[in-house]
Structure formats: C-alpha cells, structure tokens
C-alpha cells in the first residue's frame, strides 16, 4: 500500500518506530528479564554503571537495580501514555464533532467549556487532580486525559466545520442520513489523519506529564516509574549521576521516538506535504 511506502521513505520515522518497538519489547519482557520486583534491593548500594556485570546500569542507594527500574518504568510510561491519550481523544473528538457539526449555540457552549480548560495551566491542574484523588495509576491517567483533550476538541471542530459544508456531506443530508450517522460515516473518516497525528504526539506529552508528576512524588506507589527514579535521585545528583541520567535518557529516547513517528505519520497522511523533502 502506498501509505506504508510513503512512511518507509522517511528515515527518521523508521528510526522512531524501531526505538519504540524496542521500548515496547522491554516493557513486555520486564517480568521475564527481572523476575525480582524493581523495588527490592538486590545488590550492593550505589554500584556505578558497569562495575558489576550483573547490574550494567548500576544500583541506587538501597541496592535496587537501575536496569530493572527502567524496564518496569517503561510499562508505566507506555500504559499511561496510551490510555490517557485514548481517553483524551474520545472526549476531544466527541465534543469537537458536536461543536463543529451543529455549530451555533451548541458550538458556543462547547467551545466556552473547552476554553475554560485551556485557560488553566495544564500541569497545575493535573497536580491538583492527582492530589485530590490520591495518587494511583487510574487517577494519574484520568488527570492527564482531562488536561489534554482541549487541543483535540479544537482540531476536530475545525475539521468538522470545513468538511460539513463540503458537497458530499450535503449529499448525505439530502439522501436523508441522520446527523450522528453523517458525523460517524461521512465526516470522521475524512478527518481521521490529523487526529491520528495529534494523538501520536499527545502520547509523548502524556509520558512527560506522568514523569513530572512522579518526580514531584505524585506517582503510583506500587509501580516503578522513570519520573520517580529521577525524583528520588535528585539529592544525589553529584555523587551518583547514573541514578538520574539513565531514566532521563529513557524518557528522552522514548519521547523522541514517538515524536518522530508522529511526524512520519503526518508526512505520510498529508498529501499536501508529500515530497516536500525531494
């Protein structure tokens, strides 16, 4: 199919995909690679990287394996990134579609509601929400979803607004299709590319937000996370750099990979930009 071929022409996007596949494999294989819980001390405390071949990335203050922490952290990051994005996209598409399709007063009300969320700093709101609902994986995921849907709603509204006046949508009205059916079968399939691209980039933002929350101590206490590792290591930045650098690199590489994929999807799906590099 030409879409796959177009995507494959983008070297950056392929590299991003390769990195993401590795991260996913590590996340899936974590319990096999490291059968002992990442919270349990397994070796000598504060082993530097490559000092002991059993712990290639070293150990922390309590003798916990950094490599195991990163493997388990990948699960949390990906899980939260994907689920919160999915929730945010569902909310955003639903509100944006209604606002863009019906217009008028419905549009006014929904967009004022969206602006209400947009005027509050996203991260501050996420902190408050997590603090109110006691930090656990569900509350973190929902908090991230709640702060990240407004851009999706605005995007979808814009797409629906412009597609609604297209002739094939008018034709669907004329043959007697109902509003919800027109939105779902006529307009949405034509608006899906920008939504997918935005969603892919939102996964990266969600991972960053989760790390920031964990860094502030608002992570799930039962699950090892990259942000938590950096947060716990910040007092020892000078004595044991590896405690914060390796989780930091994990975040950097994963977010970069997802951004590359998002950009690759955008280029492959958006025919106007096709061949802009050639």
């Amino acid at each position: 199919m030409s879409f796959l071929r177009r995507y494959a022409q983008n070297v950056g996007a392929l590299i991003g995909l390769a990195i993401l596949v590795v991260v996913v494999l590590v996340a899936l294989a974590a319990p096999v690679l490291y059968p002992v819980s990442p919270w349990q001390g397994v070796g000598e405390p504060l082993l530097g990287p490559f000092e002991d071949p059993a712990y290639p990335l070293g150990t922390d203050l309590l003798g916990r394996d950094i490599a195991a922490g990163i493997a388990y952290g990948a699960r949390v990051s990906l899980l939260i990134g994907i689920i919160s994005t999915a929730v945010a996209v569902v909310i955003g598409v639903a509100l944006g579609a209604l606002a863009g399709f019906y217009g008028g007063r419905v549009d006014d009300m929904l967009m004022r509601f969206t602006e209400f969320f947009q005027t509050i700093p996203a991260f501050a709101m996420a902190v408050v929400l997590v603090a109110i609902f006691s930090p656990n994986i569900t509350s973190i995921t929902l908090a991230i979803a709640v702060v990240s849907w407004p851009p999706v709603a605005r995007l979808v509204r814009g797409e629906f607004l412009s597609l609604r006046s297209r002739e094939f949508v008018q034709a669907a009205v004329v043959v007697g299709q109902t509003g919800p059916r027109i939105m779902a079968t006529q307009i949405l399939p034509n608006a899906i590319s920008p939504i997918i691209v935005t969603a892919s980039l939102m996964v990266a933002t969600a991972i960053l937000t989760e790390s920031s929350l964990s860094f502030l101590g608002l992570g799930d206490r039962n699950m090892m996370s990259w942000g938590f590792m950096i947060g716990a290591a910040r007092t020892m930045l000078r004595e044991a750099w590896w405690l914060s650098v390796f989780p930091g690199v994990a975040i950097l590489v994963t977010v970069l990979a997802i951004n590359l994929i998002g950009e690759g999807l955008n280029d492959a799906m958006n025919p106007h930009l096709r061949g802009r590099k050639g």
Binding site: E167, F168, Q170, A171, N190
Partner: peptide
C-alpha cells in the same frame, strides 16, 4: 451537485 470531485466522499 455541481462539483463532481467534491460531491462524492
């Protein structure tokens, strides 16, 4: 419709 290109999904 007018535009045979825009009137078909």
């Amino acid at each position: 419709f007018q535009d045979p290109f825009a009137s078909l999904n």
